[in-house]
Design a binder for these strands. Structure first.
Lengths: 151, 151
DNA sequence: TGACATTTGTTCGTATTAGAACTATTATTT
DNA sequence: AAATAATAGTTCTAATACGAACAAATGTCA
């Protein structure tokens, strides 16, 4: 016989601390990631950098492919790419065999930014993750995968 | 002798899968949470519900206190509270002993929404988290705390 | 007390963010 | 082939989201 959930006892549910930790862990990471981008001097927002980094070492991707990898919704993606085009870092081109798709790829300038910014970002983030023991990292990855799977 | 990080090998760094899982696990949770709020019929956004749920069972909190608990930036919070005031769910009042602070508290209508919406949300989220074994949940919580601590 | 630093919340500008409606194009079915 | 469905992007609206600049109030220190 489990007790019914009320406004009074809801906050004390068993899973609440876990939920809070998930949010806070992500937030801590996201804030640091954003700060790195802000202070790196490349003038990229997190989303813009995400797209640039996704397009790197690639012959170009469609908007939907970029969306799948970056988890950016298509409606949002249009605006992000608009601004990257305006900055001259990315270009759009219609595909021949399917005129619905738009191929997005890095310009020479975009390649240059990718080549410089990506390693720096990975370096800085990696330094933080390496504070965890390799086995803890392994553990964390498995745990997060399980967590993701319940939704 | 560790290899230098280049644009070519950066994506293959050891910690990248873990980072990706963190983002995806959070995203999965956040999407589900948002969907629940959208379909609950209370007409609250995630941020608005977050504030309402934080104010519940409380005699009112200052904006900075709300910000600490919800992780909403103060600049954003002003707008969120504005809209909650407009909906009649929340009220602002200056504090006597410190005229800088604004005490935010639920109205009767806000209490009612809290009393109904909060248990439902907790119930639905709890059902998902309970798909994990109790020991896995314990594990996950500790892991996320460690993850948070590196940033 | 007076100068200065802190804290609190608002305002502002720019950039997401999500979903819904829409257009154009391609695929499928009858 | 004509009708219909499905897919890819764009556009639109409302609401975050964040840092920076700001004003008001409080705290600190000389």
């Amino acid at each position: 016989m489990t007790k019914p959930i009320t406004a009074k006892n809801a906050a004390k549910q068993d899973f609440m601390p876990l939920m809070r930790e998930l949010v806070r862990a992500y937030q801590a990471f996201a804030s640091y990631d954003a700060r790195l981008h802000r202070e790196s001097g490349f003038g990229l927002t997190v989303s813009q950098a995400d797209v640039i980094f996704t397009l790197g070492n690639t012959d170009g991707l469609t908007c939907s492919e970029i969306g799948e990898r970056t988890l950016i919704t298509k409606g949002t993606l249009t605006g992000v790419i608009d601004r990257l085009v305006k900055k001259g870092l990315v270009k759009r081109s219609r595909m021949n065999h399917d005129a619905r798709c738009v191929q997005v790829s890095l310009t020479a300038k975009g390649e240059k930014v990718f080549g410089e910014a990506f390693p720096l970002q990975v370096e800085a983030l990696g330094a933080r993750f390496e504070r965890l023991d390799p086995d803890v990292r392994k553990q964390a990855q498995a745990t997060l995968a399980a967590l993701r799977a319940i939704f």
